[in-house]
Simulated scan of single mutants.
Amino acid sequence: MSKQIWLDCDPGHDDATAIMLAIHCNNVSLLGVSTVHGNSSAYNTELNAARCLEAFGADPSIKVYPGAVKPLLRTTRHDPEIHGADGLGWCRRFTFR
């Protein structure tokens, strides 16, 4: 029996790996992904999660749901020198369909 999980993340490199593992682990059933501001803007993290689901061969029924667009208590901050401008360091020529 597989364990059902929901990922709430800010897809940069680490969360992209978590998404990949959740899709391909036999004892895990990924229900969905919610995204927040973090390694990049909320827009980019939502897009990164959707790109990861497609790139890693997730079932199309697994959806991405956007969450908080900014931190509740601190100022907005990204680390583009670590994660790239879009959170994954991906080239903008890759487009999600």
Rank of each mutant, 00 (worst) to 15 (best):
R92C: 10
N27D: 15
R77W: 12
D86V: 03
T76H: 05
T75A: 13
D79T: 10
G67E: 01
P66A: 05
D15F: 08
R92W: 12
R51C: 01
I82D: 06
K63H: 09
K3L: 15
S34W: 05
E54Q: 15
S34Y: 03
M20A: 10
V69W: 00
S2F: 13
E54Y: 10
I62F: 02
N44F: 15
L88C: 05
T17L: 15
C91F: 13
G84W: 00
C25T: 12
F94L: 15
V36N: 09
D8T: 14
S40C: 02
A42N: 03
S41C: 01
K63V: 06
D14C: 14
T76G: 06
P11Y: 03
C91L: 14
S61W: 00
H13C: 03
I62W: 03
V28W: 08
W6V: 10
V69C: 08
R97K: 15
V33W: 01
A85T: 09
L21Y: 07
A49D: 05
A58G: 06
V36L: 11
H13R: 13
E81W: 14
H37R: 09
S41W: 04
D14R: 14
G32L: 04
S61I: 04
G87S: 07
A42M: 01
Y43F: 15
S2G: 08
R74L: 09
N39T: 09
P11S: 06
D59M: 00
P66H: 06
N27T: 13
S41K: 01
N39Q: 08
L72E: 11
G87T: 06
G57C: 08
A18P: 02
T76F: 09
M20R: 12
K63G: 05
E81T: 13
A68S: 14
F96H: 12
A16E: 08
T95D: 11
